Simulated scan of single mutants.
Amino acid sequence: MASTSVHAGEASSSSSIQRPPPRSWMYHVFLSFRGEDTRTGFTSHLYAALRRKGITTYKDDNNLPKGDFISHELLKAIEDSMFGVIVLSPNYASSSWCLDELCKILDCNKNLGQHIVLIFYGVEPAHVRHHKGTIGEAFKIHERRQKPEDIQRWKAALTEVAGYSGWNPKDYK
């Protein structure tokens, strides 16, 4: 796929918020989603709609070169994206990859000025914030298999992102 470079606009000089300097972006959007929940439905439709509008979008199954080490390639794609679009779905937290992507997106928001768009797809923001329902069930499994510092980092990321204003598709039916 040919890459395009996208330039972020400069922040207003009257702003009291410290913003990173303008930079070039490889992608407009990085889509973070749990494949088994949304890949062939919602995320595929979102991806197609973004592409139709000319929005350069990174979706792992379309952009990930075969044979590359996945974590490095995904983390680089997140850094190279102007927006991180997070599709939080019932099984999102069951994937350590999704949780690592989420942490990286939050890091890029703070350090690179990446914007975050949050979509609550089949989950309630309160369940994400308080790690209830399927989110809480996923952490019970992670706690048996993962390092405590990873669990703590992932929970903090979910709590933080749940406080963002997000879009809930069920509100638009």
Rank of each mutant, 00 (worst) to 15 (best):
C103W: 01
C103R: 00
C103G: 02
C103L: 10
K104S: 03
I105S: 05
L106F: 00
L106H: 00
L106R: 01
L106W: 02
D107H: 11
C108K: 07
C108S: 04
C108F: 02
C108Y: 05
N109R: 15
N109F: 02
N109L: 01
K110H: 10
K110N: 07
K110Q: 11
N111E: 13
N111G: 11
N111D: 11
N111P: 02
L112M: 11
G113N: 03
Q114F: 04
Q114Y: 01
I116Y: 02
I116F: 00
V117L: 15
V117R: 10
L118E: 03
L118N: 07
L118W: 03
L118R: 07
L118D: 01
I119E: 04
I119F: 07
I119Y: 05
I119K: 01
F120N: 04
Y121I: 06
Y121R: 06
Y121A: 05
Y121F: 15
G122L: 02
G122F: 03
G122S: 01
G122V: 00
V123I: 12
V123D: 00
V123S: 01
V123C: 04
E124S: 13
E124A: 12
E124H: 09
P125V: 02
P125K: 08
P125N: 05
A126M: 07
A126N: 05
A126D: 04
H127Q: 15
H127C: 10
V128E: 03
R129F: 07
R129L: 04
H130T: 05
H130A: 06
H130D: 08
H131N: 14
H131A: 15
K132W: 08
K132G: 04
K132D: 09
G133F: 10
G133R: 09
G133S: 14
G133I: 14
T134Y: 10
T134G: 11
T134H: 14
T134A: 15
I135K: 00
G136E: 06
G136S: 12
E137R: 15
E137C: 08
A138Y: 05
F139S: 06
K140I: 12
K140H: 14
K140F: 10
K140T: 15
I141K: 15
I141W: 11
I141P: 09
H142V: 09
H142M: 08
H142T: 09
H142N: 08
E143T: 13
E143S: 14
R144C: 13
R144F: 13
R144L: 15
R145Y: 11
Q146T: 11
K147D: 14
K147Y: 07
K147T: 12
K147N: 14
P148V: 03
P148C: 06
E149H: 13
D150W: 07
D150N: 14
D150Y: 10
Q152S: 14
Q152C: 12
Q152H: 14
W154E: 09
W154V: 00
W154D: 09
